[in-house]
């Protein structure tokens, strides 16, 4: 049965000595923690180990949790840092899609269209695999921010704090990551681009709806 207590109440119960209460937090957050470390570390077996490591760190550090941020933010921060540390330890080669000009400055990729993609074209299983593959293909610094934002639901401010970045940098990276994901999905033929005719047809349909 789902534990209806708030995170803060469960944390207090654990601090009062009820270690079993921690299980409610594990059940509540294991999916997101697992997916966070999986997307950042990119390996299922390692993600499992890292998930265990994350929760163990949280348990051990619970008494130092001051409640300055929400508990979920705290968990995702630990998850992200644990996965990033693991990546650095492993020094795995990552696919760099960084786009730089001659001065070495990053610049935003020109995207053909920022509108939605027709995801209904793909079956859900293929679609999920495509998204995972695209996320995995992002460079680490983009992958981390987009996962924290879109999977973990962290605010720009919390991501900035967690990653030691400014809020502006976080927003910029997230925008770039979104753009790159879109581009990757299009380039990988995961989604078919709409034809001009289809787009015009859609626009006409929308216009009719508005008029109605």
């Amino acid at each position: 049965m789902q534990d209806t207590r708030s995170d803060a109440e469960i944390v207090q119960a654990v601090l009062d000595g009820d270690a079993n209460a921690f299980e409610a937090l594990v059940l509540r957050y294991q999916k997101k923690v697992y997916n966070t470390v999986l997307r950042l570390a990119g390996d299922c077996a390692e993600a499992e180990d890292l998930s265990q490591e994350v929760f163990l760190k949280i348990f051990k550090g619970l008494s130092s949790f001051r409640g300055e941020s929400s508990f979920s933010t705290y968990i995702y921060r630990v998850a992200a840092n644990t996965a990033i540390d693991a990546l650095r330890r492993r020094e795995a080669p990552t696919v760099s899609l960084s786009t730089e000009n001659e001065e070495g400055e990053e610049f935003e990729l020109a995207l053909p269209d920022a509108g939605p993609l027709p995801v209904e074209i793909l079956e859900s299983r293929e679609r999920r695999q495509a998204i995972r593959a695209a996320i995995d293909a992002l460079p680490e610094h983009h992958r981390a921010v987009i996962v924290l934002r879109e999977m973990d639901g962290m605010s720009y401010q919390d991501i900035a704090q967690a990653m030691g970045l400014t809020e502006g940098t976080v927003k910029s990276r997230i925008n770039r990551a979104r753009g790159r994901l879109r581009q990757l999905l299009l380039e990988g033929n995961f989604f078919e681009e709409r034809t001009t005719k289809e787009t015009e047809k859609d626009a006409q349909a929308k216009k009719e709806v508005r008029q109605a």
């Binding site: 299980e23 294991q30 697992y34 499992e48 265990q52 995972r132």
Partner: peptide, 19 residues
């Protein structure tokens, strides 16, 4: 929405192993 949908279920028994 796509990223939410792409989330994987954690492996069975993960919570137990964590505990």
């Amino acid at each position: 929405w796509l990223m939410q949908d792409a989330m994987e279920e954690p492996p069975p028994g993960l919570a137990e192993r964590i505990m």
